[in-house]
């Protein structure tokens, strides 16, 4: 039990379970799932579906953070990807056809690739600090998205496109399936190849990594491209869900949620060791919190404060100092921690 509690994922998982239980207490049907018209329904499904864009972006963010970086531009990439795909569909001669939808998806992903290459170029080749480099696109990106949409909200009506964010396949929402696929892809890509270890090496000690012959430039480039592509797919989901592109509000502040998910999940902002599973748990915690606010009927004006309290608690529970304080309150004084656990 004790060693289980020491596992780096222990506290995030406990926090998530506690939140879900809390909901179950207030709404006894909370955890139940039901089948209707061949689709699975229930609060858990809602949480996963609504959290899908955040999870996607947080997965990309995890790898970026593991290299000691950060990507603030993901929200802007969401807006650009949505704007580009919707603008294409709206302008195409056959705005309802599946081919148009597929092309729109392709355009969004290519836009993500290009934006990721730009971020990676600034960070790895020019050597701009990640926070500054991605701030450029964070600010400029919304402008680009507005240029694409001409300052308007572009509404589209294309059923295949709509299904990305709102459709079902094999009883499950397609957005959940896409997210699961990206998660598996990321896990396989980093752990079946040496990419994961090399990302961690660069994040832990860049100097030693260089002297060991590691081309950190390529590694850093890969993570920024991956992050932007994740953001582009999230942008597709968000715009598809509302069948419209909103350059101003799509993915607004989503970078903050993503960073938070990474941190709650147990990956240190200082870089190095990362956990994709932890990030997914972290994103679920954030999304469940939002649901909890509705379940408990917390007034909207204190919602943010409530969220902040939960997040701070989870982060503190992972900090060695706070844990020691806690255990010294519980039992006889136990001195300093020997193992540093990343917050």
């Amino acid at each position: 039990m004790k060693s289980l509690l020491k596992h780096r994922l222990a506290w995030p998982v406990i926090a998530l379970a506690a939140l879900l239980l809390l909901n179950q207490v207030f709404r006894p049907d909370f955890l139940s799932l039901r089948m209707q018209d061949g689709h699975l329904y229930g609060s858990l499904i809602d949480i996963m579906r609504n959290g899908a864009p955040t999870i996607l972006i947080a997965l990309g963010m995890t790898l970026v953070i593991a290299t000691r970086g950060i990507d603030l531009s993901v929200g802007a990439v969401v807006a650009i990807a949505g704007a580009a795909s919707c603008a294409y569909i709206a302008a195409s001669p056959e705005p309802g056809s599946p081919v148009t939808a597929a092309t729109a998806v392709l355009i969004a992903v290519i836009a993500g690739l290009a934006l990721g290459i730009w971020n990676g170029f600034l960070v790895s080749t020019i050597g701009v600090q990640p926070i500054i480099a991605t701030l450029v696109l964070m600010t400029a990106g919304r402008g680009i998205a507005q240029l694409i949409t001409g300052g308007q909200i572009i509404s589209v009506s294309n059923d295949p496109y709509k299904s990305i964010g709102a459709g079902y396949l094999l009883t499950l929402p397609i957005s959940i399936l896409i997210t699961a696929a990206v998660f598996i892809l990321a896990a396989v890509l980093t752990r079946r190849t040496a990419l994961g270890t090399l990302i961690e090496a660069v994040g832990i000690n860049p100097v030693a990594s260089r002297l060991a012959g590691l081309r950190s430039r390529n590694i850093i480039w890969i993570v920024y491209v991956f992050s932007a592509v994740c953001a582009a797919i999230a942008g597709l989901m968000i715009s598809s869900n509302v069948t419209a592109a909103d350059a101003n509000n799509a993915g607004l502040y989503i970078e903050m949620d993503a960073i938070l998910a990474v941190v709650i999940g147990g990956t240190s902002l200082a870089g190095g060791r990362y956990t994709l599973v932890g990030t997914v748990v972290g994103a679920f915690i954030i999304q469940t919190l939002t649901t909890t606010v509705y379940t408990l009927g917390i007034p909207p004006e204190v919602t943010l404060v409530f969220k902040a309290l939960v997040v701070i608690t989870v982060c503190l529970l992972q900090a060695p100092k706070a844990r020691n304080l806690l255990s010294s309150l519980k039992a006889a004084p136990k001195p300093a921690a020997k193992e540093k656990v990343a917050i």
Binding site: I204, N205, A208, L211
Partner: peptide, 9 residues
Amino acid sequence: KEEGLIGDL
């Protein structure tokens, strides 16, 4: 420490 080890690996 600074130029050799990847301490957390």
